[in-house]
C-alpha cells in the first residue's frame, strides 16, 4: 500500500495554505470596500452604520477629483501611444528576422527588471536636465516605458497564436498588404490588442512607485495623492477613493479575462 498518512497530510496542508493565501490576497481590497461605507468618522473596525457620505466627501475634495482626472487623462494617453508603439514593435519582432532580435526582445522586456526606484530617479534626473519637470511629459513617458513591455508581450502572444495562412490566402487573392493588415490581421488579434491597451491603462492608472518621482504640484496622480494623504493621516475618505480604484481595476481584470483569458494576464 502507498502511505496514506503522508498523502493525507500533504493534501490537508495544501488545502490550508491555499485557504490562507486566497484570504490574504483578497483581504485588503474587501476591507477597504467594507470600510468605505462606514457612517462613522474613524477607520475603526467593524464599521459603524452604512452611508455614502465618504463618497460624497471624496467627490467634493478638489485634490482627489483633480488627481482622478489627471490619472485618467495620462492613462488613456499612455494606453493609446503604448498600443501603437507596441504593436509596431511586436509585429516587426514576430514577422521579420533581423540581426539583434534577441537583444531587442531583451530590451523590450527590461523595464520589468529595472527597480522602480532606479527608473524613477533616473528619469527625474533626466527631466531636470531637460527642464521639463513642470510639465506632464515625465509622467506620460515614464508610464509608457512601464507599459510597453506588457503591450509587446500581449500582442506578441496574439500574433504567434493566430494562423498566418489566413493572411497568405488573402494575399493570394491579391489583396494589397495594408488591406490584409486591416481586414485580416487586426480583426484576428483584436482581443489581444484590446487587452494590451487596457493593460497599459491600468499599469499607468495604478502606478505609484515611478509616478512619485515624476509628479509636480499641478499634476498629481490619484495613487500619489493617496500616498501623500495616507503618509500623514488616514480616514474613511481614502477608503472611498481606494474603493473607486478597486472597482476600476476589477472591471479591467474581468474585461481582459473575457477577451483573452485570465492566465495570459500576467
Amino acid at each position: 500500500m502507498r502511505s496514506d498518512f503522508i498523502d493525507d497530510a500533504m493534501a490537508a496542508s495544501g488545502a490550508l495554505i491555499r485557504a490562507i493565501v486566497y484570504t490574504m490576497l483578497a483581504l485588503p481590497a474587501v476591507l477597504v470596500i467594507a470600510l468605505s461605507f462606514t457612517s462613522g468618522d474613524t477607520m475603526n473596525f467593524p464599521p459603524t452604520g452604512f452611508s455614502l457620505r465618504w463618497y460624497q466627501k471624496a467627490w467634493e475634495n478638489e485634490l482627489f477629483v483633480t488627481a482622478l482626472w489627471t490619472s485618467t487623462y495620462v492613462a488613456v494617453l499612455v494606453a493609446i501611444i503604448a498600443l501603437v508603439i507596441g504593436f509596431a514593435g511586436a509585429f516587426a519582432m514576430n514577422r521579420c528576422s533581423f540581426a539583434g532580435k534577441t537583444f531587442l526582445q531583451g530590451l523590450a522586456f527590461s523595464p520589468l527588471i529595472v527597480p522602480a526606484v532606479v527608473l524613477g530617479i533616473g528619469l527625474l534626473q533626466l527631466f531636470v536636465w531637460l527642464g521639463l519637470t513642470q510639465t506632464i511629459y515625465p509622467l506620460i513617458i515614464g508610464h509608457l516605458v512601464l507599459a510597453v513591455p506588457y503591450v509587446v508581450r500581449t500582442i506578441l502572444a496574439s500574433l504567434s497564436l493566430h494562423d498566418q495562412l489566413l493572411e497568405q490566402a488573402a494575399m493570394n487573392l491579391r489583396a494589397p498588404p495594408l488591406q490584409v493588415i486591416r481586414r485580416i490581421t487586426l480583426p484576428l488579434i483584436l482581443p489581444g490588442l484590446l487587452s494590451a491597451a487596457i493593460f497599459a491603462f491600468v499599469t499607468s492608472f495604478g502606478n505609484v512607485t515611478v509616478s512619485m518621482f515624476l509628479t509636480y504640484g499641478g499634476n498629481v496622480t490619484l495613487p500619489v495623492q493617496i500616498f501623500a494623504y495616507v503618509d500623514t493621516s488616514y480616514d474613511p475618505l481614502v477608503a472611498a477613493v481606494s474603493s473607486i480604484m478597486i472597482i476600476v481595476t476589477l472591471i479591467v481584470i474581468l474585461t481582459i479575462e473575457r477577451l483573452i483569458g485570465a492566465e495570459r494576464l500576467a
Binding site: L35, G206, V208, V230, S242, M245, T249
Partner: peptide, 27 residues
C-alpha cells in the same frame, strides 16, 4: 486566478492602505 492577479493590477497604495486597516491599532 482573478483573485491571484488582483494585487498585480491594483495600485500598490490601495493594497498598503488595506493592510493599514487590517493591522492598525484599532484595526
Amino acid at each position: 486566478t482573478i483573485i491571484a492577479i488582483m494585487p498585480l493590477t491594483l495600485s500598490l497604495v490601495v493594497i498598503v492602505f488595506g493592510w493599514l486597516i487590517v493591522l492598525g491599532r484599532n484595526g
